[in-house]
Design a protein around this nucleic acid. Structure first.
Lengths: 215, 215
DNA sequence: GACTTTGCTTGACACTTGTCAAGAAATCTC
DNA sequence: GAGATTTCTTGACAAGTGTCAAGCAAAGTC
C-alpha cells in the first residue's frame, strides 16, 4: 500500500486524539477526489484552486489549510490516483483460464475504462505531458508509468503463459505499444465517442498476438 | 502545400504593393518561429504572449498586430510546424534500396530528431493533450496526426515492399504503435537524455519486423 | 516636402491566479 | 458551560494574464 500521507504537506500539529490524523487524511482525500474531478474536466492548465473549491463543498481557503500549495495538492492527487488505476486488470489476469479468455477480458475492461473514466485518462496524458516541463511532477509521473508498465507486463506474461509461449518484446516496449494505442483512443474519444471504443479493441486485438512468439 | 496564411487573423487591409502581403506573412512566420521556441521550452500552459515577445525581437503589442488573439497565434504556430515535420523521413524512404537500409535510415533519423528537436516534440505531445480540453485546437491537432500517420504508413509500406511482403497492421494502428514508442522516448529524454536515444532505436528495431508479415 | 498609410511601442484596463492572514465558527477538553 | 484548539470563511494582496487603444516612428504616395 502506498502511503500517500507522507507527502510534503504542511502537516499542522496533530491533535492528540487518534481519529484526528485520520480525519485530516479523509479531508485530504475528499479534496483530492473533488480536485481530480475538476482536473479531469478542465485539464491541468485550466484548473485553478478556486475552481476546485467551487466544484466542491469547501471554500478556497480550505485547500490551503490542507495543502501547502498547488503543486502539493496536484502531487497528492496524482499519488492518490495512482493507487486506484494500476490494479484494474488484476482480476481478469487471475481468473482467466485461457489466452482467449484473458484477451477478451482485457479488451472489454480496457474499453470499459476508456468510456467510463475518460476524464481521468485525459488528465493522465495531460499530466505526463506537463511533467516534461514541470520537474516537480516527474517523480510522481514516473512512478505511475512504472506501475502501468508492470500492469501491462503481468497481462502479457500471463497471456504468453496461457498460450504456451513467451513475450516477444520487453516490458517497456510492450507498455509503450499498448499505451500508444490507448492514448490514440482517448484522443479520438473526444471527437468520436461512439467509434473510438470499437476501434481500440479491434486494434489491440490485432496487436496482442504479435507481442508473443507464435506458439 | 498548406496555405497557412488563410487563417482567421485580423487581416489588416492589405497595401497595394505585392511585397506587402508577403512582408506581413514573413513577420507572422518570424513571430511563429519565436513563439515555437518559447512554447517548446515552457509548454503551452506556461507560455504567455509577453514571454513570447520577450524572447523575440518584438514587443508584446506586435503580437496583437499580427494575430487576433492567443489562440490565433498558437493555431498558426501549429499549422506552421505541421508543414515542417511530416516530411522528415521522405528522403530516406525514397533512397533506401533495401529493407535493412530503410530501417537503418529511419532509426537514425528518428534518433536524430529526438535529440535535436526535443522541445518541438515535447510541445507536440503537450498540444495534443491540450486539444482534449480545448476544442479550438482539435482540428489542427487532428490534421497533424493525420499527416504523421501517413508518414509512418509510407515508411511501413515501403519497408514491406522492400521485404517482399505486406503490412500486418493498418495505418492508424501502425502510427499509434510507433508513436507510443516515440512518446515514451521523449518523456524519458527529460530524465535521461543519454540513454533514451539508444533505448528508442532498440525498441523500434525490435518492433518494426512485427508490423509486416514474415516474408 | 506635406500627407497618408503602415508598423510598432507604450501604458493601461479588467480579470484571474496563488497565497496568506485575520477572525468567525465549530469542536473538543476539562 | 468556560476555555482552548481545530477547522473553516472571508477578504485582501501582489503578480501575472489577454486585450486593447492612443500615439510615435517609419515608409510609401502624390
Amino acid at each position: 500500500m502506498v502511503r500517500v500521507s507522507s507527502a510534503s504537506a504542511a502537516e499542522p500539529s496533530r491533535p492528540a486524539r487518534v481519529s484526528g490524523i485520520d480525519k485530516i487524511e479523509r479531508r485530504r482525500v475528499a479534496l483530492a477526489e473533488s480536485a481530480l474531478k475538476t482536473l479531469g474536466e478542465l485539464g491541468y492548465a485550466r484548473t485553478s484552486l478556486r475552481e476546485i473549491a467551487n466544484n466542491s463543498e469547501f471554500t478556497h481557503g480550505v485547500v490551503h489549510y490542507y495543502f501547502r500549495d498547488k503543486v502539493d495538492l496536484i502531487s497528492y492527487c496524482v499519488r492518490y490516483y495512482k493507487t486506484k488505476c494500476a490494479q484494474r486488470y488484476d482480476e481478469v489476469v487471475e481468473t482467466a483460464g485461457s489466452a482467449e479468455e484473458l484477451a477478451a477480458g482485457f479488451l472489454s475492461k480496457m474499453a470499459q475504462t476508456l468510456v467510463e473514466e475518460t476524464p481521468m485518462h485525459r488528465l493522465w496524458y495531460d499530466l505526463r505531458a506537463q511533467s516534461m516541463f514541470e520537474e516537480q511532477l516527474r517523480p510522481d509521473v514516473a512512478a505511475i508509468d512504472q506501475l502501468l508498465e508492470e500492469m501491462i507486463w503481468r497481462i502479457l506474461t500471463r497471456y504468453a503463459d496461457l498460450s504456451g509461449t513467451e513475450p516477444a518484446v520487453d516490458a517497456p516496449t510492450a507498455y509503450a505499444l499498448v499505451d500508444g494505442l490507448f492514448e490514440q483512443a482517448v484522443v479520438n474519444y473526444a471527437a468520436d465517442p461512439a467509434g473510438a471504443r470499437d476501434l481500440l479493441t479491434g486494434r489491440v486485438e490485432q496487436v496482442l498476438p504479435k507481442l508473443v512468439y507464435s506458439a
